[in-house]
């Protein structure tokens, strides 16, 4: 376990658009308990020092994806990040590369649109009612463990958006569809039950998508769930090119 109680200094970005023209920093003295995560310290400020502090959090077990923040300049899931990793002074800021709504809360409308643009659902050539020949007696598609493991990793994204904060392309080109959205599209493209790769590859060949990636690999380094979006982007590039080349020979991707 970690060492005993200590008091740390937490520097937190504060911004209320009703009052402030630009974000500012406030300092708080936080008496911590052994085992605390960064989120616990932020919650302490909210509960005991300044109830006007705004931040998002819920599950505190690294699965709801709400509590991403910059901690000492790096994007972190604050409920998973131990205070022990830091010294007596920690700087907490809203996730980089997103507009700030207030304090530690960022606006993610843009991400939600990008997310939807990759058609993150199973696409089948036939409607379910006409697809019965492919379903077993339990009403499910057959999928082998190997077919499952082909995409499983890319289905583990919790949409915490740390990868967008870390991505140098997102920083320069806000329209870039970004690591999580590409990984999600690729997740469906590699699912043996899906028949929609041609549609998604068309999205991927558009401007500001897979070919904008500079392969800095930052996304995979900060991902708290080991999704490895960088590898998804690389594979998706290949898929989009192959699909495009097929289209040159056979109209409609050969389908």
């Amino acid at each position: 376990m970690s060492e005993g109680k200590k008091t740390i200094k937490l520097e937190i970005t504060r911004f209320d658009p009703d009052v402030d023209e630009v974000p500012k920093t406030e300092e708080y003295e936080v008496p911590t308990e052994p085992g605390w995560k960064v989120l616990d310290a932020v919650n302490y400020v909210k509960d005991h020092l300044d109830p006007s502090l705004s931040h998002r959090w819920s599950c505190r077990m690294a699965v709801c994806g709400s509590c991403g923040m910059m901690v000492n300049g790096e994007p972190k899931l604050t409920c998973k990040t131990s205070l022990d990793e830091y010294g007596d002074s920690i700087k907490v800021e809203p996730l980089a590369n997103f507009p700030i709504v207030r304090d530690l809360v960022v606006e993610i409308d843009g991400f939600m649109d990008k997310f939807k643009s990759v058609k993150p659902w199973i696409i089948r050539a036939k409607e379910r009612a006409e697809d019965m020949e492919n379903l077993n007696e339990r009403g499910t598609y057959s999928q082998s463990p190997d077919e499952l493991s082909a995409f499983k990793q890319f289905s583990m994204c919790i949409n915490c958006l740390l990868c967008y904060s870390a991505c140098p392309v997102v920083a320069n080109e806000p329209e870039f569809i970004g690591p999580a959205a590409i990984a999600l599209g690729h997740r469906y493209n590699t699912d043996s039950r899906d028949e929609g790769a041609a549609e998604r590859n068309e999205v991927f060949r558009g401007e500001g998508t897979v070919f904008s990636c500079s392969f800095a690999n930052e996304c995979s380094e900060v991902c708290p769930k080991n999704v490895d979006p960088a590898s998804a982007v690389n594979q998706a590039k290949l898929g989009a090119v192959v699909d495009w080349a097929k289209g040159l020979i056979l109209p409609r991707g050969g389908a």
């Binding site: 379903l135 009403g139 499910t140 082998s144 463990p145 077919e147």
Partner: peptide, 23 residues
Amino acid sequence: APKELALLENWGCPWSREEDGTV
């Protein structure tokens, strides 16, 4: 219940599988 979980399967839920491809 079985119909509902099968629907989730059809919608992409990555249920763990047996070697024969069943859930």
